[in-house]
Design a protein around this nucleic acid. Sequence first.
DNA 1: ACGTACTTTCATTAATTTTTGAACCTACGC
DNA 2: GCGTAGGTTCAAAAATTAATGAAAGTACGT
Lengths: 174, 174
Amino acid sequence: MKTPFEKTDGRRASRPSFEPLATHELELADFFVRMAGILGVPRSVAEIYSLLYISIKPLDFDLIQGRLGMSKGSVSQGLKFLRDQGMILSVKEKGSRRELWHPTPSLATSLVSLLRSQVLPALEQSAPALQRVLDGVQSDNASPEVLERLARLKRWNSRALELFPLLLPPPTEA
Amino acid sequence: MKTPFEKTDGRRASRPSFEPLATHELELADFFVRMAGILGVPRSVAEIYSLLYISIKPLDFDLIQGRLGMSKGSVSQGLKFLRDQGMILSVKEKGSRRELWHPTPSLATSLVSLLRSQVLPALEQSAPALQRVLDGVQSDNASPEVLERLARLKRWNSRALELFPLLLPPPTEA
DNA sequence: ACGTACTTTCATTAATTTTTGAACCTACGC
DNA sequence: GCGTAGGTTCAAAAATTAATGAAAGTACGT
């Protein structure tokens, strides 16, 4: 029987201990947490990304969990989110089934995909809705001012919808 | 003595009744709520703005509260938020101390101010933090790759910080 | 200058979001 | 093929954020 993480003093098999985060690691995490907050991404996800971002080598599940002191569930969900957004990639050492995670080369691309996934659906749903609002107002108590406001809103929405695919091409790259 | 809102049946002075929202009003509210959600602005605030946006004339506190069916506190805080962001303005009919609210002419300007208030503080705090992270990593276990990543991050941050005031001039206009 | 119409404040409650962890998969190395 | 390392799920708990409303200002019309 194998004790998975033998302490170096050899006294007893126990849960492995991980380095607590260093000052600069905490500070980078802060940065990512703040930025993520603006986009409504939970702190745990930002912390995971931050750790991978500042790490020399790809990191495995247990190390992430251990160093950040978070639950298995959070690590699993956080990695899933980052993976789905194309923000991280995994490699495997051969002979091990364990995945090792590292950030994708382009953070820019990642952020763009994140924005896209947040904003595009809202824009898309809005186009027909705004038209219906315009119709509703017209049959109602139409005032030139309000009509103009709403028309402008609709124009914006259309333009944004056209521009988006140009600025932020859908996932096609490594 | 004046009963401010006499019911039409004339039986008793009671709390006034307000029109429930029409379909197109609900739909516009939906739109604003969704957009606001992206920026982390609470639903109640978006609803208030939406109502003012689709209204022909400036609206008073009680009408907003009544038609949206929300508490005094929420209306007060919502109006405060929108006012602070420069998204709404008030007028007064003379002889009344009641404020009547309407959206500022430029929604573009408003949104920009909103973004500014969310993003700028984060960017500002980050600049020195990122420098400290770089220093920390250098003294630590410096790897060219990680250094490059962090340097790039810092460059981004600086550029964003420079660009922001150009794109989004601080509140100076009507 | 008073009284009250109108608004704000803020402690409490409600709603929502995030995290946890134990049970449950699943596929790989043996 | 079996046993388990490695990971996922998801219902429940914890944390965070938003809404409420009674009490407390404030300033305006008289």
